[in-house]
Design a protein around this nucleic acid. Sequence first.
DNA 1: TTATGCCTTGTGGTATACCAATTCTCTATT
DNA 2: AATAGAGAATTGGTATACCACAAGGCATAA
Lengths: 226, 226
Amino acid sequence: MSKPLVSESLSDTVRSKMESELVAGHLAPGTVLDERSLAERFGVSRTPVREAVLHLAAQGLLNVIPRVGVVVPKLGIRELLELLEMLAEMEGVCASFAAKRMTIVQRAEFRAALKACRQAARNGDSKRYAGANKKFHEIIYAAAHNEWAVRQVRALRMRCAAYQRSRFDLAGRLDKSLGEHERIVAAIEAGEVARSRLAMQEHISIGGQDFADLVRGLDPNLLASG
Amino acid sequence: MSKPLVSESLSDTVRSKMESELVAGHLAPGTVLDERSLAERFGVSRTPVREAVLHLAAQGLLNVIPRVGVVVPKLGIRELLELLEMLAEMEGVCASFAAKRMTIVQRAEFRAALKACRQAARNGDSKRYAGANKKFHEIIYAAAHNEWAVRQVRALRMRCAAYQRSRFDLAGRLDKSLGEHERIVAAIEAGEVARSRLAMQEHISIGGQDFADLVRGLDPNLLASG
DNA sequence: TTATGCCTTGTGGTATACCAATTCTCTATT
DNA sequence: AATAGAGAATTGGTATACCACAAGGCATAA
C-alpha cells in the first residue's frame, strides 16, 4: 500500500509513465513504437523500457511483435464487447462484496460521495461529475475488501479507457448515471448482495442503443480492421 | 491457439517451465531463488530468466524483492480466502456466460464430459475424476466465449494451485462434486443465467467446514507468518 | 509495366559487464 | 558472552554490445 521510501526503479517509472499515456489517449491503439525510441524519449537505456513494456504486455495493454515493434493493440468490436461485458461483471462482483463488508466509516464516505454526485448532476457539471463518480466507485472498491478483485477491475478499466472516454458528455447521461448510483447505494446499504451486483452491472454495462452510440462516437481507426 | 512455427523465445520457454514447477508444487511458497542460479539451471543467461520472472511477477505468481531475491509469495489465510472467493466469482461468471452462449456442439461435449465424471465417480477413481473434472470446466470456459474472463480464471487457478491440490482425495468428495456438476449442467442447458452462476459459485467456493479442512490439510509453512 | 529476388536496414532477443545497495558474517570491544 | 561495527559477498538494477531474422526498398529481368 505505502510507497517505498527508496526511489522506485526506472522500470517502474517508465511503466507508470507509459500507463498514463495509454489511458490519457496519447499512444492511441494502432500506434507502433520501438524500444530504442522509447529509451531515448525517457532518457534511459533499453533495459528498463523493455521491462516496462514486457510488464504492460503481460497485462495485455501492449503487444510486442518480433521484428515489428511494440504496438498498442486495436480491439475489434467483438473484443470490445467482451471487454465491456467483463468489466460490468467485475464491477458487479465488487459491489456485491461491498454489500457484504462495507464498514461504518466507509458508509459515511459513500453517502458523501453520492451527495457530491447529486450536486454535480444538478449543476450539469460533467467534469465535476466525473470526479465525484470516480470517488464513488473508489469507495466501493475499498469496501469490497478484496485486493484481487480490485486489481482486476482496475486493469480492465485501463484496458478499455481509450474506447470510452467522455461518457458523461451526452445529454441526459448525468441524470441517468445518478439514478443508477442511487439504486446502488440503496442496495449496498441494505446489504442485499444480489441486488447490489445487479444494480452495478446494469450501471456499467452498455446495451442496445447505448452501445450503438458508443461505437458511432469512436474513431474508426481505433477498431481493428481484421 | 496454434503454436508459432518459429521457435518460441527463451523467455517464454523459461516462463512456462517455471509455471509448471509452480503449479506442480516444486517451488513451494516461501522459496527464495536468485536469477543467476535460475539462469545456470536453465542454461541461459540472466536476461531471459529475468524477463520470465518479471512476467510471472506481473501476474502475482512471484515476488521480486531488491537485494533479496525472487520469492514465491506466501499467502496469509485472509489472502487465501480472498483469492478463493474471487475464483468462485469468476467461475460463476464464466458459467453464466456459458449459459448464454453455449453452442450445440459444445452442449454435446458437455454432456459427454458429465458422463465421464459419472463413470469416474461410480468407480471411485479420483485420479480419473480429476481429469474428467478438468475437461468439464474447460468446456465451460470455451462456451463462455469471453477471452478475458477465461484468461483471468486460469490465472487465478494457477495462483492458488499450491494451496488446493488433491481436493478429490477426501471421502465423499467425488459424489458431492458430481452432484454439483449435475446441477450446473441442468442450469446451463436450461439457459438460466443466474442459476448457472450460483450453482458454479457454490461448486467452487469453500465454506465453513470445507475451509477448515483445507487449512488443516495445509503445510503450515505455506502460510505467511506475518 | 510488372513481377521477382537480393540486400540493406531496423527490429526484438540475448549475452555480458558493471553498479549500487543491502545483507550477512566476522571481529573487536565492552 | 553479548553487541556493535566494518567489510566482504551477493543481490537485483541498469547499460551496452552483438546477433538472427524479417520487412521493405530497389534493381533487374521478363
